[in-house]
């Protein structure tokens, strides 16, 4: 089902992320998703996340769909030119994948094949434009599609705690004008910054899902602060993670922090997007503590 229909119904939409493995066996991925993510509305499947080569997003989307989950196909511009992107979009529609998250993608230098040629023939904005064009029955080259055109829920991303949030808002506006229908954000650890961002972003009238990462340790928090753009874990949160090492290791502290962030942000947004990063098993507890279990 299209995630946009859920927003229209006024649902507080919960999605979670699944990263395909570097290999061809995904039974455990499907099992985990079926066990721990049955309470979420949709499951994002990442596209060679962080420029690390893995099993393909589209194939995993199809497998998850067959397992009864509602996949969101993440598509980046790093590895494909406009011909391959459009071809994969048609393939997705043929396979019954209805949700897209359209991104520029990390640079190849960030991943495990830094020698690779970065493509970026299109970018997030022109990719959204391209999807809209395909939906009108015409490809980017101006040629008519045969038969009924595809129809997707078109998602995009924005980084609300970025140190250049005004430039991020300008880019968000471009995405909206190009046809983006909903947004998922980079991970938020500073609800007050997110709330300020939403005051400005609400003018675009598009639903926003706040990005949530369950912090696993003080070390992970510091790593993100030093290396992940647009993410900042405040000092008092790092202290909280340091205080009781056993509790933190068991995931209890991280879930408490994430649930608190969700509660603070909830009145200002239309959903959450959980990036569990291997802690899919903590998702049910997180949803319960955040008051989002059914």
């Amino acid at each position: 089902m299209k995630i946009t229909e859920l927003f229209e119904r006024g649902e507080f939409v919960v999605s979670a992320e699944v990263g395909p493995p570097k290999g061809i066996h995904i039974e455990h991925v499907v099992e985990e998703a079926k066990t721990y993510l049955k309470g979420v509305h949709a499951v994002n499947v990442t596209d060679n996340q962080s420029s690390v080569m893995r099993l393909g997003s589209l194939a995993v989307c199809k497998v998850l769909k067959d397992a009864g989950l509602n996949p969101i196909f993440q598509l980046t511009c790093r590895d494909r030119n406009r011909i391959a992107l459009q071809s994969d979009l048609l393939s997705a529609a043929m396979l019954g994948i209805e949700n897209l998250l359209l991104l520029t993608g990390d640079h190849t230098k960030m991943g495990d094949h830094p020698q690779a040629k970065p493509v970026f023939d299109l970018d997030s904005v022109s990719l959204i434009h391209t999807v809209k064009q395909l939906e009108s029955g015409v490809d980017l080259g101006g040629n008519a599609l045969v038969g009924e055109p595809p129809k997707f829920a078109k998602g995009a991303v924005v980084s609300p705690c970025s140190d250049s949030v005004d430039a991020q808002l300008a880019k968000m506006e471009r995405k909206v004008r190009a046809g983006a229908e909903y947004f998922q954000t980079q991970a938020v650890f500073e609800p007050e910054k997110f709330i300020k961002f939403m005051e400005k972003a609400k003018q675009f009238g598009k639903p926003v899902q706040v990005g949530i990462i369950i912090p696993k340790s003080a070390g992970m928090a510091k790593f993100m602060n030093n290396n992940v753009a647009g993410v900042h874990v405040p000092d008092d949160m790092i202290e909280e993670l340091k205080k009781d090492k056993e509790k933190t290791k068991a995931g209890i502290t991280g879930v408490e922090i994430a649930a608190r962030i969700i509660k603070e942000c909830k009145p200002y947004c239309q959903g959450i997007h959980i990036m569990a990063l291997g802690w899919e098993s903590k998702v049910p507890a997180l949803l319960e503590q955040a008051g989002l279990s059914e």
Binding site: H107, D123, V157, D163, A229
Partner: peptide, 25 residues
């Protein structure tokens, strides 16, 4: 570094490019 023509990506930190910390976004 990505030769984008529609605005910045989400990869700048403190005004620097994620790909090369010596390069301004």
């Amino acid at each position: 570094s990505k030769s984008l023509v529609n605005g910045q990506c989400g990869g700048s930190k403190d005004g620097k490019c994620e790909v090369d910390s010596n390069m301004e976004c």
